[in-house]
C-alpha cells in the first residue's frame, strides 16, 4: 500500500481515493463527480499529449487535467 498523487499514477493502475485536497470550484466539481475519499478508481489512460487523464470511477469515465489530478491523493494497491 502506497499513497501517491493521482497525477503520478500509471495507466491501468487502480487505487482508492484517500483525500481530495482542494476547496472552491475545482474541489466542488471533483467531489460532485463522485471523487470522494473511499472511492475506487482506475486510471484508464491518458490523452495523446499525456494530459488530461481518463479515469474509470463508479462505472463511468471521467477526464481531468493533470494539474487537477494533483490535488487527489490515492492509496494504490
Amino acid at each position: 500500500m502506497a499513497r501517491l498523487m493521482m497525477r503520478n499514477m500509471d495507466d491501468n493502475q487502480s487505487g482508492t481515493i484517500s483525500a481530495v485536497k482542494v476547496s472552491g470550484e475545482l474541489g466542488r466539481r471533483i467531489r460532485d463527480m463522485g471523487l470522494v475519499p473511499g472511492t475506487d478508481i482506475r486510471v484508464q489512460g491518458r490523452a495523446p499529449l499525456y494530459d488530461p487523464v481518463a479515469l474509470r470511477v463508479r462505472g463511468f469515465t471521467l477526464t481531468l487535467r493533470n494539474n487537477e489530478a494533483e490535488h487527489i491523493e490515492v492509496e494504490v494497491c
Binding site: E25, L62, L64
Partner: peptide, 12 residues
Amino acid sequence: GAPTPFVMELPP
C-alpha cells in the same frame, strides 16, 4: 480568471 475546471465525463 482561473481556468474553468476541465473535469468532464466521457459519455459512452
